[in-house]
Amino acid sequence: MSVDPALVENGRLDPLVRRLVAEVLVVPIEQVTMSRALIADLGAESIDFLDLVFQLEEALGKRIPFTRWQSYVTERFGAGDLSQAITAGVVRDFAECETRAE
């Protein structure tokens, strides 16, 4: 199944990711900005990231193994503090990668 390229080209990923993060974490969408840390600032737990990947699967219309998210985070942040590092912007960047992946 292919992903609609307009999602990226028209800048629709930001609002999509904000909405999905707000839904999964049950926080007001106004609290979700691209720079806010999902764990430290918005209270995300590990299972929330799996739910986010599920939501992205449905929104993008393609299968996304959870291991891809895990690899993305590991490659990007190495030994850094994930509680501060993973922001909504990181989820957006991951989603953008997924829109381009086969």
Binding site: L25, V26, Q31, I39, L42, G43
Partner: peptide, 8 residues
């Protein structure tokens, strides 16, 4: 039922 930073 807390959510977000309050729950954390």
């Amino acid at each position: 039922r807390l959510h977000g930073p309050e729950r954390r």
